[in-house]
Simulated scan of single mutants.
Amino acid sequence: MSRCLFCHQPFFERVSWHGLLLLEEESALCPECETQLITLEGRRCHICSRALRNDERICHDCLRWQQRQETADLLERNMSLYQYNAFLKEVITMFKFRGDAELARFFAGRLKALYQKEFRGYLPVEIPLSEARLKSRGFNQSVLLMEGWAEETKLLQRASGEKQSKRNRRQRIARINEQPFHLTQLAKPLIEGKKLVLIDDIYTTGTTVRQAARILKRHGAERIASLTIAR
């Protein structure tokens, strides 16, 4: 019997041949909690994975990014596991801000599977926290999401600043020309001519991953994508 990392209720694991042969990781969420996660399926924006309406091929956000010369080619695409609904917001809040880092176990295996399906040949690169934020939180959520399938690269460092979560949509997008990231000393020879996939928890407007993509491309990276839990 297992105990759900979110609601803390005990539950029995579903029995399957994959599980019996140890090809599946033990689930960290009970079936009731897991059913509240909405998998991103159906018609989605081919750049950011956002659900589309009517005959759209690309969402309004990505259309605006493409219309701006300085951001048109920064990000190849984003792939996310789930829709960012109220339940997932609470799970990620527990994970990031209440120190329940064990919840990363549930998502890491699913990100690994999506990486292997969509981004083979890309180097996974974590989105870094500032030194002050890392000290106060005690962990970088992006690094934990890579645990068991990718190594921390330490290619990027991040300056201290106001939390993205405190800004609204317009304020986030307006900061695209600011650069909170810089490369570490050993980064350039490791990224030149390479395909990279940025790992983070949430894709909201796409500003953060595009800021990171800009400096990586400026120093020789060939293509940049991103992989996140939520869209």
Rank of each mutant, 00 (worst) to 15 (best):
A174Y: 07
G121L: 07
P124V: 04
T93H: 14
R44M: 11
G138H: 13
S16D: 09
R231E: 07
R110S: 14
N168E: 15
W65M: 08
C62F: 03
C45K: 05
R57I: 04
M146Y: 00
K96H: 06
N54T: 05
E147T: 04
H219Y: 00
D200N: 05
T71S: 10
Q211C: 08
L40W: 07
G206K: 10
S226K: 01
A230S: 09
E13N: 12
T207Y: 14
L40R: 05
A51K: 15
R137L: 09
Q69E: 09
S80G: 13
L114C: 11
V143G: 07
M146T: 00
R158I: 00
C7S: 01
R214Q: 05
V197T: 03
K194L: 00
L114D: 07
G193C: 08
I38L: 13
I191R: 00
L190V: 01
R231C: 10
K112A: 14
L20R: 15
E76I: 02
L88N: 12
I38H: 13
P189Q: 00
G193V: 05
R170I: 04
L123T: 02
S80C: 14
L20W: 08
C59T: 15
E152G: 02
L134Y: 12
Q185A: 03
L20Q: 15
L37D: 06
R169H: 11
M146G: 02
V209N: 03
K195Y: 06
I215D: 01
F97R: 10
H60N: 13
L21T: 05
L23S: 10
T35P: 05
T35K: 13
S27R: 14
H18S: 12
V15P: 10
H18N: 13
S2H: 15
Q157P: 07
L198Q: 02
Q171E: 14
A108N: 04
V197M: 02
L183G: 01
G148M: 11
A213L: 05
R57N: 10
Q36W: 08
Q211F: 11
G109N: 03
Q36K: 11
H18Y: 03
S49F: 15
L123K: 03
S80M: 12
L40C: 06
A104P: 02
K195A: 10
G19Q: 14
Y203S: 08
L75A: 13
S2R: 15
L129M: 10
A213G: 03
S226D: 01
S16Q: 07
V91W: 05
L75N: 14
T228G: 07
I127Q: 02
I47P: 07
L123A: 06
Q36E: 13
D200F: 05
A187D: 00
R57L: 08
T71L: 09
I224N: 00
L145H: 06
A108S: 12
H18P: 04
A86H: 06
M146Q: 04
L198N: 02
E90C: 12
H18C: 12
Q67Y: 06
S49Y: 15
E147K: 10
E131Q: 06
M94I: 03
I224L: 01
I173V: 14
E13I: 13
E32W: 04
E76C: 04
C33N: 08
F139R: 00
R53A: 07
C7Y: 01
F12R: 15
E152R: 03
I229Y: 11
